[in-house]
């Protein structure tokens, strides 16, 4: 399944930041790369529904995500951030259970049997059993990131948006997170902003390059195109 960004317009009045007629399609594990301020995070926020585009559609599985209600969208999209609030008193199970929130039947959230089953299933899948009863705030960066991925899985969403999820992790943990993403990829769309492309490119199915609110490259993950974009073609041979 693909996610189509169809002619999106969005701008911040004051800063002159303007995305115009942005068009791309996202499939499999897609890397979103580009310099700071090129509009990557803004694009993620638009897909997430935090920012409303002035015009255009975001199509997935025949539905326009822009027009969807927040609660319905929460069943389709999950977000994995770079930083997470260190909330105290929540163990790993509680954190993953939060992913079931969009599935509440009434106005009020109550944990149901199927929610508990889903959370257990995810804990097994991501091999988090040993951490299940530990407090989230006491985990290491890599462990926390895995828990957040597990929460996204419990959310049963088909689109994962990641904003530099490995930015503060060491090499071992970076690879572990990417391996986890590879394992759960199935027929999902994973769109990730990564500040370190060398390892993540090996895992990606597609690469999108953004510069000054425009898409300058979309296609196969390719280090040469990336180096060319940054004006570093001379160094390609050294890598």
């Amino acid at each position: 399944m693909k996610l189509y960004i169809d002619n999106i317009n969005f701008g911040y009045e004051k800063s002159g930041f303007k995305i115009k007629n942005l068009k791309c399609d996202i499939e499999g594990f897609t890397l979103l790369l580009g310099p700071n301020g090129s509009g990557k995070t803004t694009l993620l926020k638009i897909i997430l529904g935090m920012l409303k585009p002035e015009k255009g559609r975001i199509m997935y599985d025949g539905c326009d995500l822009v027009k969807m209600k927040h609660r319905e969208r929460a069943k389709v999209i999950s977000f994995i951030p770079q930083f997470y609030s260190d909330i105290r008193g929540f163990n790993v199970y509680d954190m993953i259970m939060m992913g079931r929130y969009p599935y509440r039947k009434s106005l009020i959230w109550r944990e149901k049997k199927e929610d508990a089953e889903k959370v257990r299933e995810v804990i097994r899948k991501i091999s988090l059993r040993s951490l299940e009863n530990r407090y989230f705030s006491e985990l290491s960066g890599g462990e926390k990131q895995k828990v957040i991925i597990a929460r996204a899985l419990a959310q049963e969403s088909k689109i994962f948006l990641l904003d530099e999820p490995t930015a503060h992790l060491d090499l071992k943990n970076q690879i572990e997170i990417l391996e986890t993403l590879k394992r759960i990829k199935n027929n999902r769309v994973i769109l990730g902003v990564f500040h370190e492309p060398f390892i993540s490119l090996r895992y990606a199915d597609k690469m999108i390059l953004m510069d000054r609110c425009k898409i300058v490259y979309q296609g196969k993950p390719d280090l040469n195109s990336l180096f060319e974009f940054y004006g570093l073609s001379d160094y390609t041979g050294q890598m």
């Binding site: 969208r73 999209i77 929130y101």
Partner: peptide, 23 residues
């Protein structure tokens, strides 16, 4: 008490709250 779950989610990052359907 009825809103306690939403209050928990608000403690997360804003993007996470949105992605869980809490505005």
């Amino acid at each position: 008490v009825l809103r306690s779950r939403e209050l928990d989610i608000i403690l997360l990052e804003k993007e996470e709250a949105y992605s869980l359907g809490v505005i």
